[in-house]
Amino acid sequence: MKKFAAIVLAALVAVALFANGTTEEASSGFTPEKDVSWVCTSKPGGGSDIFTTQIKDAMKANGITNANIVTDYITDGSGEVGRLQVSTTNKAKADYTLLTFNSGDLMPMVKNTDNRVENFRPLAIMAVDKQLLFIGEQSKYSSWQEVMDALKNGQKIVIAGSKGDDIETYNKLIAELGVAESQLSYIANDATSGAITSLLGGHVDLCMSKPAAASQYVEAGKMKPVLALSNNRFSSELLKDAPTLSEFGYNNVEVPVWRGVTAPKAMSDSAYAYWAECLKKASETAEFKAYLSKNGLEPMYLFGAEAEAYMLDYQKTYLASIGK
């Protein structure tokens, strides 16, 4: 009986090894043999979580990796604890740790802590979002030209938006327009939905939002885009009428809101190449492309060294803008 059990066990192990060897598509000399921890520093159900889940699902559905990936939500300290933990992950675990990392994570991290992009190994940037300014049904103004005229007449205008990237975009906007903060004011909400509520209720004049959060309201006629905070006009039918700032004789204001993935500094080169390859393959899947179009995100594919250079440059520009 014992002999039989041993044979069965050996056969199972052989089959498992064989299966592992045949379906593993990404080749870099590294093959995951343990569970992978994918750290998400915001709550389940949020934008970062959905992004993470979509990539995981795309990888699984297309057999890109056989690794068992578990999402770990480490939200303490507004996510800083999770980011610090990943950046300092030691060698043994580093090859099995990934982190969802967005521009909205980078800004508070470098502003409020000593943690920097240099403490990670950026793997990929896979999507980018841009903002627009909207007016509501009850707004006093009907176009961006009217808003600018009002500003010239010394009237006070209030924009509502979200935190993080939106505040940075607002700062660039007032710098470009050359108006004071007290004249073109900004109120930060925990989420864009709070800003939209203020606009729909007529409590603010303008609302800053990304396309996904606003499109339903534009469709229902409750909101109208008046300015695209981007280098080019948006291509979608609902948003294409919004002019860019250059059409009014200013420089365009664009703060790309990107979504990406990083790894611990201690990750080995072979594992780094493996995961960058997996993410690249995931970005080419139909599932991931459907996710982008559903959420109004634009594709922006940078992997490995390219992603690292981009994040470092973004950090440098941001640090300079806050005088650090």
Binding site: T75, D76, G77, S78, M107, N112, T113, G164, A188
Partner: peptide, 21 residues
């Protein structure tokens, strides 16, 4: 204690990363 929502600056966290939240 934590992050000031309007300015995004830390308050009373005494350098502790946990208290940032």
């Amino acid at each position: 204690i934590g992050m000031d929502l309007q300015s995004g600056s830390p308050r009373f966290n005494f350098g502790n990363v946990y208290l940032l939240g």
